[in-house]
Deep mutational scan, measured.
Amino acid sequence: MEQATVKWFNAEKGFGFIERENGDDVFVHFSAIQGDGFKSLDEGQAVTFDVEEGQRGPQAANVQKA
């Protein structure tokens, strides 16, 4: 698992990007966020996640709020 920071997340559209420590951004979809209830992330929030290869490149999976 990697630890990184949420760059931005649009709760209405259900997706955003996580900024990795190496500077690369990773796409995150609300369905990858672990937990119950409304799944959203806040800008600047610390998260841990795995990286999977998606249809359009790397994307976050198993996202957990740190």
Rank of each mutant, 00 (worst) to 15 (best):
M1K: 15
M1A: 13
M1W: 11
M1Y: 11
M1E: 09
M1L: 11
E2G: 10
E2W: 14
E2T: 11
E2K: 11
E2L: 14
E2S: 11
Q3C: 15
Q3L: 14
A4Q: 04
A4Y: 06
A4P: 03
T5I: 13
T5A: 07
T5P: 03
T5G: 03
T5Q: 09
T5L: 11
T5H: 13
V6G: 02
V6I: 09
V6M: 02
V6R: 01
V6A: 01
V6Y: 01
V6T: 04
V6Q: 01
K7H: 07
K7S: 05
K7V: 05
W8C: 10
W8H: 01
F9G: 03
F9A: 02
F9W: 15
F9Y: 09
F9S: 00
N10S: 12
N10P: 01
N10C: 12
N10M: 05
A11M: 10
A11C: 14
A11I: 12
E12D: 11
E12Y: 13
E12N: 12
E12S: 13
E12I: 13
E12K: 15
K13M: 11
K13P: 01
K13G: 04
K13Q: 07
G14M: 02
G14N: 02
G14V: 04
G14H: 03
G14L: 03
G14T: 03
F15S: 00
F15C: 07
F15H: 04
G16V: 05
G16L: 04
G16F: 04
G16E: 00
G16S: 02
G16R: 01
F17M: 08
F17D: 00
F17C: 08
F17T: 00
I18P: 02
I18T: 03
I18A: 02
I18V: 05
I18G: 00
E19L: 14
E19N: 11
E19R: 15
E19T: 15
E19S: 15
E19I: 15
R20G: 05
R20H: 05
R20Y: 05
R20F: 07
R20Q: 07
R20K: 08
R20T: 08
R20I: 08
E21G: 10
E21S: 13
E21D: 11
E21C: 14
E21T: 12
E21K: 13
E21Y: 11
N22W: 10
N22L: 09
N22H: 11
N22F: 11
N22E: 09
G23N: 08
G23A: 09
G23Y: 07
G23V: 03
D24A: 14
D24Q: 13
D24G: 11
D24Y: 10
D25W: 13
D25T: 12
D25N: 12
D25R: 11
V26D: 00
V26F: 05
V26Q: 01
V26E: 00
V26Y: 04
V26H: 00
F27Y: 06
F27D: 00
V28Q: 02
V28G: 01
V28D: 02
V28C: 07
V28T: 03
V28A: 02
V28K: 02
V28L: 08
H29K: 04
H29V: 04
H29S: 04
F30V: 06
F30L: 04
F30C: 07
F30T: 03
S31H: 06
S31E: 01
S31L: 08
S31G: 05
S31M: 07
S31P: 00
S31C: 08
A32Q: 08
A32N: 06
A32C: 07
A32I: 04
A32P: 00
A32Y: 05
A32E: 03
I33P: 03
I33H: 00
I33W: 03
I33R: 00
I33K: 00
I33L: 07
Q34D: 07
Q34M: 13
Q34V: 14
Q34A: 11
Q34C: 12
Q34S: 10
G35P: 03
D36A: 12
D36T: 13
D36Y: 12
D36N: 12
G37A: 07
G37S: 07
G37Q: 06
G37P: 06
F38D: 07
F38H: 08
F38R: 08
F38W: 14
K39W: 06
K39N: 06
S40A: 10
S40E: 07
S40F: 13
L41V: 04
L41H: 01
L41W: 04
L41M: 04
L41R: 00
D42W: 15
D42G: 10
D42H: 15
D42M: 15
D42R: 15
E43I: 14
E43L: 12
E43D: 10
E43G: 13
E43R: 15
E43K: 15
G44Q: 04
G44T: 03
Q45A: 09
Q45H: 08
Q45I: 08
Q45T: 09
A46G: 09
A46I: 14
A46K: 13
A46W: 15
A46P: 11
A46T: 13
A46L: 15
V47Y: 04
V47A: 04
V47D: 01
V47C: 05
T48S: 10
T48V: 10
T48A: 07
T48Y: 14
F49G: 01
F49C: 06
D50R: 14
D50M: 14
D50T: 15
V51S: 04
V51W: 08
V51C: 09
V51K: 04
E52A: 10
E52W: 11
E53G: 07
E53P: 11
E53Y: 15
E53A: 10
E53Q: 14
E53R: 10
E53T: 11
E53K: 10
E53I: 15
G54S: 10
G54D: 05
G54E: 04
G54A: 07
G54C: 09
G54W: 07
G54N: 06
Q55M: 13
Q55K: 14
Q55N: 11
Q55H: 13
Q55L: 14
Q55T: 12
Q55A: 13
Q55W: 14
Q55I: 14
R56A: 09
R56L: 10
R56C: 13
R56N: 11
R56I: 07
R56W: 15
R56H: 12
R56T: 07
G57R: 06
G57S: 06
G57M: 04
G57Y: 04
P58V: 10
P58Q: 09
P58T: 09
P58A: 09
P58M: 10
P58S: 08
P58H: 07
Q59W: 09
Q59V: 10
Q59P: 04
Q59N: 05
Q59C: 07
A60N: 00
A60Y: 01
A60G: 04
A60R: 00
A61D: 02
A61Y: 10
A61H: 09
A61K: 13
N62D: 02
N62P: 01
N62A: 05
V63L: 05
V63W: 00
V63C: 05
Q64T: 10
Q64P: 04
Q64C: 09
Q64H: 12
Q64W: 11
K65D: 08
K65F: 10
K65W: 09
K65E: 06
A66C: 13
A66Q: 12
A66H: 12
A66M: 15
A66R: 12
